[in-house]
Design a protein around this nucleic acid. Structure first.
Lengths: 211, 211, 211, 211
DNA sequence: CGATAAGCGAGACGGTACGTCAAGTCTTATA
DNA sequence: TATAAGACTTGACGTACCGTCTCGCTTATCG
């Protein structure tokens, strides 16, 4: 929500903030992002248009606020086992993404492109947090010495994260735990110093099947 | 362009088709996708609004037509060397995507979501063709016996293709030949029956450095 | 229908003339004059737009043609009795007017005002014929010596005719034989050389009650 | 102008009301009723289309508002002399009608037919007021005992009023004070208990010549 | 008999206006 | 100052007709 000068005047009504975001949420579900109009949001929230504009200067930031609210915090897993952590991180990634509504992610991103500042805000809020969970996991794997020395971490993160985003955005194939686990396996075979060792360890944890 | 019954009536003026698409092209460059209005397109093309609507019933299909025009045909490479083919296919993929204007890809996709038919048209036109070039290449590699038996082809294609789309869509990291070559190398290490052999062959072709 | 040079070419299809006028008739009844569009007429008649425009250059003349067709010929009555003739002439007037659809009369007139030629055509076709039936009757009455010498004939005709048009156009009061007969009586009391004599004669004919 | 709930909100700008009606007035004079388009009105008034639609939902009510403004109030004459009052009432009637632009009366009426509510509004605003001036005059004459007992007042009013409307609508004959005076004379001869007495009284007032 | 000429259905074409919608800004009165 | 209500300009939406035109075809009359 918009920062405010603290001095004087009537204080903002906090109920309005939630009422507006609730209305955004409902309208997104009902009519999708494209036909989400601030005027409708205000009407639905039983709030004046000005009250909305006072808090969020445009619909991009308004929707961003709602999706951020939905996303909640993202905590990376720390089991100590590289393969298990990665599986879990990717599953978390997918879950987070899915619960914020992948169908709003794409148009919002599209709407934020073209403006430097908006794009940055989008990335900071929705893109980086879940992605960093994956990155952290990989970094810990490297510190543990599980990865080859010449690994390009950004490339590795992208290869994993992009798969999830890709499928959810285009919807041409499903994303489930089995699929992501396989992707992790294939990739790690290319990245790991000793893939067989990692596999053995993971079987010990018996978290997921790495066949 | 809109299909037509061939019988009777004054034939459509082909100049109008190109004039409109040219106008779309110019306006996309100048103002981006978001503020592309059919009314402006018609004005710019020196053409009546009805003439535009007669051919393309909405702006999604209009822009789709223009991007399709830009993309042209996509022919997968056939050098006979798996690593070289893959490098080339991915480079082609990136090139195709870039020349059609990656900044319009995302908002157009966003605009096509929510309508079954539009989404299908989008995928058929812009998504599948370059992607299939990669898939074909991988299929030939498998037929040649270069890949492990348990390879999930769709997963492999996605892992490679998504990387390009991902970076170009979110713009958080550049995409160049060196990067894609590295991604191919990492992935093939996980997919290949005998990665060293492939590498040796590719060095013989001296196409790109596979270090 | 439009006049034509007789020489050469394919002759016009007479079926089209009637098909078009029938369509006009139907559309007038269904949607009224205001929303009568030539394009709709052509569609309804199963005829091309050009075929309509070839015959009638605009919708005013088109509707005029249809109303003229409806009106048919107007023959003034000749009973020889002034009061009876007048009653009958006025009844004929009302009947004619009503059968051509008074609700189209007003908007058509309105549509024809503003163009000299159109207005003249309207008056010649729809206004003058029934009105002249009344005028003829009054003229014969004067020749018979039934009217005062200083009677202004145009004023007299207008006073009678306007009443019918007036009520049918504005619809604020009904028009029936009893009402028009009363109007005739009142007016004749002011115009006649000897009203009582006329009344006596009419009672002899026992056509209508002139009390 | 459109009625509004008085509570809250920014009040309507009164300048806009007049600017719009002025524009309507100018455009009516220049191009007539038929080509009066709300879009043009707004342009001419230097006002947005929405501002016009907010006040008047269609062009009929818009023009009605302008003609009402032009018409002003109608006060029936009260000289105490029946013939003089009638002459004056009819002259007032004609004057009122003429000053509001008889050429717009007809197409507006035509445009209002077909819709119950619009027609009523038209009658209430433009038809009844001047007509009631005539009716009042006749009613006072009857109370004074100047008219025969069996007079049908509605018929009498129509006979006088229709003449003016008739001639002005169809434009086939002029309307001036002399003509209307003659019509009054003829009609009164048929309606009056003692026409000669009325005539004598009027000559005393020397208002107009009743020969 | 074949040339000429017009009729005809179909539908493209540039216009113009329709009536609606939302954007983002503003003005007022009230809290 | 925030708030609700709503006026305001701007600009596009997608639709509907206008009256004109081009096309390929059909149906007459005339030389």
């Amino acid at each position: 929500m918009g920062q405010r000068s603290v001095t004087g005047g009537r204080p903002r009504d906090a109920h309005i903030d939630t009422a507006v975001l609730d209305a955004v949420s409902a309208l997104l579900e009902e009519d999708g992002y494209r036909s989400l109009a601030i005027e409708k949001v205000a009407r639905r929230a039983g709030v004046s248009k000005a009250a909305v504009y006072r808090r969020w200067p445009n619909r991009q930031l308004l929707v961003l606020a709602e999706l951020e609210r939905r996303m909640g915090g993202v905590e990376p897993p720390r089991t100590g086992c590289t393969l298990c952590d990665l599986d879990e991180a990717l599953a978390l990634f997918a879950r987070t993404f899915r619960c914020m509504g992948p169908e709003f992610f794409s148009p919002l991103l599209a709407d934020c492109s073209g403006d430097e500042e908006l794009h940055r805000r989008f990335m900071d809020t929705l893109f980086d947090p879940p992605r960093n969970a994956v990155r952290d996991t990989l970094e810990r794997a490297r510190e543990r010495g599980d990865l080859r020395d010449d690994v390009d971490l950004t490339l590795a993160v992208d290869t994993l994260a992009s798969l999830v985003h890709y499928r959810l955005l285009f919807g041409h194939a499903p994303v489930d735990g089995r699929e992501t686990a396989r992707a992790v396996a294939v990739l790690l075979r290319g990245l790991a110093r000793d893939f067989a060792a990692l596999e053995a360890e993971a079987v010990g944890h018996s978290a997921t099947s790495h066949g």
